[in-house]
Amino acid sequence: MTTPVLYLLGSAAPPVLHVAEVIRTAQTQGWDVCLGLTPTAARWLDAELPALAELTGHPVRSQYKLPREPDVWPPASVAVVAPATFNTVNQWALGITDHFVVGFVAEAIGKGIPLVAMPCVNAAYVRHPQFERSVETLRSAGVTVLYGPDGFVPNQPGQGRPEAYPWHLALEAAHATISN
């Protein structure tokens, strides 16, 4: 049996600072993990990128590859977008693919790659009318969006607790997609 491949794709929200712990947990669960980051998340983790590449055994990606460059990751069994910021959720739902993470998952919908998204947004952002529309758009496209009582529940602005981000729910949902 081959090792399932998890694309862990994070955007710039405070829980991304804990991504090394999540990678280790996923690896103990049997995943081969490839880490992709939005450009801002990559900047936040710049000093850790070499160690994260060593931990996963794959280059950390935050940019599109050039057409002449080979793929450096094995094919995904499932992709998890977490933490998914307000910007990432809306760009994805609207098909705005100006960075690698959103470009990959937008195309993955059409390729039939299982997708899990777990937002990380505060309660002020979710009051913007586009956010709920974007969540519904992604769900209607077959994306498992962990938002609400059974997923991420927004905090009030300035009251976030990145250490309490429910990463375990994203990994459980990823596992469920390949168990079916």
Rank of each mutant, 00 (worst) to 15 (best):
M1D: 15
P4W: 08
L8A: 02
S11H: 03
A12D: 07
A12K: 04
A13Y: 01
P14D: 05
P15R: 00
P15G: 03
H18P: 08
I23G: 02
R24Y: 12
R24H: 12
R24A: 13
Q27T: 06
Q27M: 06
Q27L: 09
W31C: 00
D32P: 11
V33H: 01
V33C: 02
L35K: 00
G36W: 01
L37K: 05
T38W: 05
T38F: 01
P39F: 11
A42Y: 06
R43M: 14
R43A: 15
W44H: 15
L45A: 09
L49P: 13
A51N: 14
T56S: 04
H58M: 13
H58V: 08
S62I: 12
P67R: 12
P67Q: 12
E69V: 10
P70T: 09
D71C: 04
V72S: 12
W73N: 06
P75F: 10
A79D: 05
V81F: 00
V81Q: 00
V81H: 00
F86H: 04
N90L: 06
N90R: 02
N90E: 05
Q91P: 09
W92F: 10
W92N: 01
A93N: 04
L94N: 10
L94K: 14
T97C: 11
H99W: 10
F100K: 11
F100N: 11
G103C: 08
V105T: 06
E107N: 12
I109G: 07
G110Q: 11
L115F: 02
L115H: 03
V116T: 05
M118W: 00
C120P: 02
V121L: 02
R127F: 09
Q130G: 13
F131K: 01
F131C: 07
E136P: 12
T137C: 12
T137I: 11
G142D: 13
Y147L: 04
G148D: 09
P149N: 13
G151T: 10
F152M: 06
V153G: 13
N155D: 12
Q156D: 14
R161G: 08
R161Q: 13
E163F: 05
E163C: 09
H168Y: 11
L171R: 01
E172W: 08
E172Y: 07
H175K: 15
T177C: 08
I178H: 07
I178F: 07
S179Q: 14
S179L: 15
N180P: 15
